[in-house]
Structures are given as C-alpha cells and as structure tokens.
C-alpha cells in the first residue's frame, strides 16, 4: 500500500523524500497444518454422507452445529454420545452484502452475500453462507432457506477447518429460498450472529 496523503501531512515538508524510499514491501506468508479435531472429523464424515450433525448439551439441551466437544454455556464436555442430526432447512438470521475491495488475495470482484443460517433443530448459526436464487435486494432476516448440496461425488472435507465457524462450502454450495413463509422474529432473535 502506498503512503497516504494524510500520512504525508504528518511529515514536515522539508523532510519529505520520494515515495520509493518510504515504502518497503514485506508480504508475510505463514503455514499452518493440522488434523481436524476428532469432533470435526465425525462431523465432516456425516456431512459428506448428507447429514448435518451437531452436539446436544446434556445439561441445557442447546444444540451446536458443528459440535464443539463442550457446551460453552454450561462448560460441560460433549461427546459422540451427544450427537444429534439437524435439518438442512433453516432460517436466515442475519446477512451482509459485501462489495469487494481489491486487497491482496481477494478473488471476488462482484458484490456477494455472507449470511448466517440457523438450521432447524440447531441453536447455533452456520456463519458465512452464500445465498443464491434470490436478488440481493430481496434478502431479509427471517427468510426460510434450504441447503444446495454438492453432488455426492464432488463433496470433500476441504472446506471444514478447526478455525472459523464451521464452514460447509466443500459439501454445501449455498443456501436458497425454500418458499416457506418467513420465520417469526421472536423464534430466532436469541440466535442472531
């Protein structure tokens, strides 16, 4: 990034030097590699099989998708014994329409949607979901959506990582309107993310 005008104003005029002596490019690349946690390992196996599985807290009954291996509200461990399947239909609880800025590594060029989807049977949202089949100006909170699954042969574990909020992009392409009436706000307002 080049020195901005406002930055230059902070430097006394007599001290100004040509831009090329002020700027040093230093792109940093850091490598991380790790196996999926055992909980996510099971989660992704089920996903590839076409099932969305979460963990149900044995104490409060809240369902997390994907499972975390514990309930963050009760601080009790959850295990494979607490697995529960949820629906691939859900409610769009919140969204952002992003106009991409050409920063280093950005591949998007057109405005796109990042939406949070609360699947039926889950208490936690899937974040960062793409919404298709509806113009951007008609996307709204409360809209009912369903998963657009990849063909079984195209699914992989690639999009699921130990970081972030449980992306499903290598198994589910996007969510599309299901045509059901909008969800009553009171039913999802405690789950907005």
């Amino acid at each position: 990034m080049s020195a901005s005008t406002s930055k230059q104003n902070l430097v006394p005029k007599e001290n100004l030097v040509p831009k090329e002596t002020l700027v040093m490019e230093h792109l940093v690349s850091l490598t991380y590699s790790e196996e999926l946690t055992p909980v996510l390992d099971r989660y992704v196996d089920a996903l590839i099989d076409g099932r969305i599985v979460g963990h149900k807290c044995p104490s409060c009954g809240r369902v997390y998708v994907p499972g975390k291996g514990y309930c963050p509200i009760c601080v009790v461990p959850t295990t494979a014994a607490d697995e529960i399947e949820v629906s691939d239909h859900g409610t769009l609880t919140g969204f952002t329409i992003i106009t991409p800025v050409a920063y280093y590594g950005q591949t998007e060029t057109e405005p796109f949607v990042y939406a949070s989807v609360l699947l039926d049977g889950s208490d936690s949202n899937l974040g960062g979901q793409e919404i298709v089949g509806v113009p951007h100006d008609q996307i709204r909170s409360g809209m009912r959506v369903r998963a657009v699954w990849k063909a079984k042969t195209d699914r992989s574990a690639e999009g699921v990582s130990n970081r972030g909020w449980g992306s499903v992009s290598s198994v589910i392409d996007a969510f599309e309107p299901s045509g059901e009436p909008d969800m009553d706000r009171a039913k999802y307002e405690e789950h907005i993310f």
Binding site: E35, T37, P38, V39, K68, G69, Y70, V75, P77, N162
Partner: peptide, 24 residues
Amino acid sequence: ARESEVQLLVPIVTEALQRSGLDR
C-alpha cells in the same frame, strides 16, 4: 494434541476450579 485449544482448556479450567472448591 488433536483437540482444539479450547478443548484442552475446558477440563483443566474445570479441574482448577474444582480443586479450589470455587463455583465458576
């Protein structure tokens, strides 16, 4: 460790509190 960092923390935070007898 195959568990996430927070999964490593959950049992030991719980154990430390239990050892002191303090409710979180």
